[in-house]
């Protein structure tokens, strides 16, 4: 799976978790938290959705890797391809 596809998968999850947010002009290099209404409870949902939809486990110490879209894609692409 290439990075564009991984980005889309992550975007799909965020779109469900942050239902009322507009994702069309998301800046991939900026923290998601600064652009969207996401708190720690919501990040947990993102982690749980990754597990539920893609069987990808994110251990707690790796949560900071999910800070921005770019860091999500960097961190998750190898996991999607395992």
């Amino acid at each position: 799976m290439d990075t564009a596809e991984v980005r889309q998968k992550v975007l799909d999850i965020i779109a469900d978790v942050a239902l009322d947010d507009d994702l069309s002009d998301l800046d991939d290099s900026v923290a998601l938290r600064e652009q969207l209404d996401l708190d720690s409870m919501d990040f947990l949902d993102i982690v749980m959705e990754l597990k539920k939809r893609h069987k990808i486990e994110v251990p707690q110490e790796d949560y900071p890797q999910l800070a921005s879209m770019q860091s999500c894609v960097d961190y998750l692409t190898p996991k999607f391809n395992q």
Binding site: V17, D20, D21
Partner: peptide, 17 residues
């Protein structure tokens, strides 16, 4: 879209618009 308030939080957690 008010961030961090109980009402918006609960709707989000239940995935209700």
């Amino acid at each position: 879209k008010t961030p961090g308030k109980p009402l918006t939080k609960l709707l989000k957690q239940l995935r209700l618009p």
